[in-house]
């Protein structure tokens, strides 16, 4: 039995179209014009216990809308959702105690008080036993390295530290399913790394089911087992991370560094140019031709000072799938 089941799920927002000017505003009162926006279209998927799934898609693809339906904030326009065998929109207390929804851009914690006060309150709201509370706080603050900040007023913490507190606040009651909507938005690299590491370790320890959205592909690649790609509200890909890497397994990427400016298009004959700067170039080539291309490059370019060979980057593959599968 899957933990999450989504069947033909759709959401259409009904938006009241506002007209400009007083006259039109008054007209509006009597004759309301609506526009409809299909945010999620006929979505189907299921998620097993303990999976970490990345929900990807461009801005406006419908990720947040999907998460809001999975958590019971929004009623679907049509289709069914079950999470842990509950219908989310019924918002049963037992259900709400088992899920957590962290929104990267909405703080839950009182800014005027130290985080620890909010945690104590959270403990009461979620009826966490003293024992579990203590165990979880110790473990979480240790993992995220914020123990020394528990008694600092929230408004004095940095963005990254606050995000860590938000995570603790949500993991505090050992939820069975956690939804993370852009948990690393706006964070610097070290905070991003800390959060990814935390998610990996936490999952390894607790087998919690986690759904995460992010525009940082490294977040997804380093934490998820599986990705679901959305485009304009529809699913265009659903598969394991390993499956994604396999798509381009016959290709490799050469990272070239030169000691002077180059014209990248001179290298187009070897393969596809992924990225370039003034004196660097990322070139995707056929794995089979790797030897001949490298020898050719070295022989013909005196100013080539460094070559490294890597697998096709995850974010490039995801982007390719998006481009090919994009629904117009």
């Amino acid at each position: 039995m899957s933990i999450i089941n989504v069947n033909n799920l759709s959401k259409t927002y009904k938006i009241h179209e506002k007209q400009e000017g007083l006259k039109n505003t008054i007209k509006d009162l009597f004759n309301r014009k609506y526009v409809y926006k299909d945010a999620v279209n006929n979505l189907n998927f299921s998620i097993e216990k303990g999976e970490i799934v990345g929900l990807l898609g461009e801005n406006g693809a419908g990720k947040t809308t999907t998460l809001k339906m999975l958590t019971g904030i929004l009623y679907p326009t049509s289709g069914e959702v079950t999470v842990l065998n509950y219908i989310p929109t019924q918002r049963k207390r037992e259900f709400l105690k088992k899920i957590a929804f962290v929104m990267g851009n909405k703080s839950e914690i009182n800014w005027d008080l130290p985080a620890i006060d909010t945690f104590r309150y959270q403990k009461l709201v979620y009826q966490v036993s003293d024992e579990l509370y203590k165990k979880n706080i110790d473990m979480l603050t240790e993992m995220l390295n914020v123990k020394h900040l528990l008694n600092t007023q929230m408004r004095r913490l940095s963005l990254g530290e606050r995000m860590k507190m938000e995570l603790i606040n949500s993991f505090l009651y050992s939820p069975e399913v956690v939804f993370l909507d852009e948990p690393t938005i706006g964070l610097d690299l070290s905070s991003q790394l800390a959060i990814r590491k935390f998610l990996r370790e936490y999952r390894a320890e607790r087998k919690t089911t986690i759904i995460i959205t992010s525009h940082y592909m490294d977040d997804i690649e380093e934490t998820c087992d599986r990705v679901i790609l959305l485009s304009k509200g529809s699913k265009i890909f659903d598969g394991a991370i390993s499956e994604i890497s396999r798509i381009y397994s016959s290709n490799k990427v050469l990272q070239l560094v030169f000691d002077q400016s180059i014209n990248p298009y001179e290298f187009a004959k070897y393969g596809e140019i992924l990225e370039f700067t003034d004196n660097t170039l990322k070139l995707m080539i056929d794995k089979e031709q790797y030897r001949s291309i490298v020898t050719g490059l070295i022989n013909q370019n005196r100013n080539l000072i460094d070559i490294s060979i890597i697998n096709v980057p995850f974010k490039y593959i995801v982007n390719q799938i998006m481009v090919e599968g994009r629904i117009s």
Binding site: K68, G72, R91, L96, K97, M103, K106
Partner: peptide, 11 residues
């Protein structure tokens, strides 16, 4: 939209 945060609390 801040209701979203409180609507999913078990209280």
């Amino acid at each position: 939209g801040d209701l979203s945060k409180v609507i999913i609390k078990p209280y």
